[in-house]
Design a protein around this nucleic acid. Structure first.
Length: 469
RNA sequence: GCCCCCAUCGUCUAGAGGCCUAGGACACCACCCUUUCAAGGUGGCGGCACGGGUUCGAAUCCCGUUGGGGGUGCCA
């Protein structure tokens, strides 16, 4: 046994990268970092019907996004399980040669029929002592020994399995291809994996894997099964039902730091009264033994709250830079050449406290970059429904012609007009806001107008007055 | 069906027999601040699933019940 702990993350490339996978990867990565170990990435691409090469790059990109850097010295891989097929078959043959496995010529239908007649599900060990050798259509099954298999799990403690409840499971398919349980173990042995940290759904097949390790003469790794991430119905998060794609959250403007921090509060908690902690603290404090045993609901609301917190903590320049993908691409509702970074930077401090995810930003500043502001008709009608709305907005317009153009002066001017007619600023700003920004809510009005500029402000007020008739 | 895991506010969690009148966070509600909306501040609502033990003492240990979940493929 070498002294370097070797962890691994072994996803299959069957779709977008799952947030549950992200958390499992994070656990392994953090453990590798804090123990000066190695994080091995192994792509389990043996299910030819479901694999797509594009997903492999997606996994690598997603890992990089959450800080699991493929160029870091603690990172090793990616390895591809399919490349080790011959090695896995060789291991299976070794198991056959040593009597730990035997061939069986029964078809799935025959097994099913026998089970039905016997009244107990599963394979009944029919070919255990028939002395069959390898042949077309024959599968290789593991000869599960009598006794009890105890899995020592770093999260759950000792878990006992009575071997009579474990059927003689398949190692090699009728077509000669290895199945998951074999491939997984043989690769782990080949790659000198010492610690297997994965989701709880794998706990039931762990005794099988442990038996294979032993039968192959290897020392089983340290196991740890971490709780599942579930949806609101408390069912395992699924790609079909739930919003689980890491890429999707990234595209909506969740920042990686918030995602990582949030993911780490599921099933584990940093010490102290705050859950918002930096990655270095997490790496320092994380312990498998303090991971919870029960499943955790992936709460998008709380994720967004964390994200808002992270966004607000950023220096405004960093926030502004983080916003750019949403402001300069086709995600933005205005032509790319109308975006002005300097203008955005001026309004950014006010946007920063008002968004939870970055994708909300464009709608908050579109009035600055759109040639013609898009008026929300309902908001407009409501704002201009008051008796005073039209005349006072006209007065504001007239005053704005020569008022000093900064937010304080603008505010004082509007306030004065309101005071003369006994209309509070809170109400009076409504028609002005819709006229100039198209909406009833947004960043502080006078700051917005200061950035918008006098000419455009006057032009929009004119247009609104015309519209209000 | 069988095997395995789990059980603290709605949710994520703190809690390793007395520090618990059970702490924090998200959500929710109220108030304050306020140029809308936020942000921020203050306060509030709200939980140890149930039943038995063990113990001077149990959210914490044991057993059972109930409930939830995972697995049970020649998928990974």
């Amino acid at each position: 046994m070498s002294g370097t702990p070797r962890y691994r993350f072994a996803p299959s490339p069957t779709g977008y990268f799952h947030v549950g996978g992200a958390r499992t990867a994070l656990y392994n990565w953090i453990l590798a970092l804090q123990n000066d170990g190695v994080f091995v990435l192994r792509i389990e691409d043996t299910d030819e019907s479901r694999n797509e090469p594009q997903w492999t790059q997606g996994i690598i990109d997603a890992l990089a996004w959450i800080g699991i850097d493929g160029t870091d010295t603690h990172f090793e891989g990616p390895y591809f399980q399919s490349a080790y097929a011959a090695n896995q078959v060789a291991a299976a043959e070794k198991l056959f040669a040593s009597g730990h496995a035997y061939y069986c010529d029964l078809t799935s239908e025959q097994i099913h029929d026998r089970a039905k007649i016997a009244g107990r599900p599963g394979y009944d060990g029919f070919s255990r002592d028939r002395g069959l050798t390898a042949g077309p259509g024959r599968s290789l099954r593991f000869r599960v020994p009598a006794g009890v298999t105890v899995v020592h799990d770093e999260v759950r403690g000792a878990v006992e399995f009575d071997n009579t409840t474990i059927e003689d499971f398949v190692l090699l398919r009728g077509n000669g291809k290895p199945v998951f349980v074999l491939a997984n173990v043989v690769d782990d042995i080949t790659m000198n994996i010492t610690h297997v940290v994965r989701a709880e759904e794998h706990l039931p097949n762990t005794p099988k894997q442990q038996m294979i390790w032993a039968a192959l003469g290897a020392t089983p790794p340290s196991w740890a099964h971490v709780p599942l991430l579930v949806n609101e119905q408390r069912k395992k998060l699924s790609k079909r039902r739930d919003k689980v794609a890491l890429e999707q959250y990234r595209d909506e403007g969740v920042v990686a730091e918030a995602m990582v921090n949030y993911l780490m509060t599921l099933g584990w908690a940093p010490t102290g009264d705050t859950e918002i902690v930096d990655f270095a603290t997490i790496v320092k404090d994380f312990k498998l033994s303090s991971v919870n045993h029960s499943s955790a609901f992936f709460d998008i609301k709380k994720l967004n709250a964390f994200n808002g917190e992270y966004l607000r903590q950023m220096p405004v320049e960093a926030f502004s830079a983080a916003c750019e993908p949403w402001l300069t691409s086709d995600k933005a509702p205005w032509p790319a050449d109308r975006f002005d970074r300097g203008v955005f930077l001026r309004i950014a401090p006010h946007v920063q406290t008002r968004v939870a995810v970055l994708s909300e930003v464009p709608a908050m500043v579109d009035f600055l970059f759109l040639a013609d502001v898009v008026i929300d008709a309902a908001a407009f009608d409501k704002a201009f429904s008051a008796e005073w709305a039209r005349p006072l907005t006209q007065s504001i317009h007239d005053r704005f012609v020569d008022v000093e153009w900064n937010h304080d002066a603008l505010k004082i001017a509007v306030e004065a007009i309101g005071a003369a007619s006994d209309v509070k600023l809170g109400k009076l700003q409504a028609p002005l806001r819709v006229a100039t920004t198209g909406r009833s809510v947004g960043p502080p009005l006078f700051e917005s107008l200061e950035v918008l500029g006098r000419n455009e402000t006057l032009r929009r007020i004119d247009a609104a007055l015309a519209r209000a008739g």
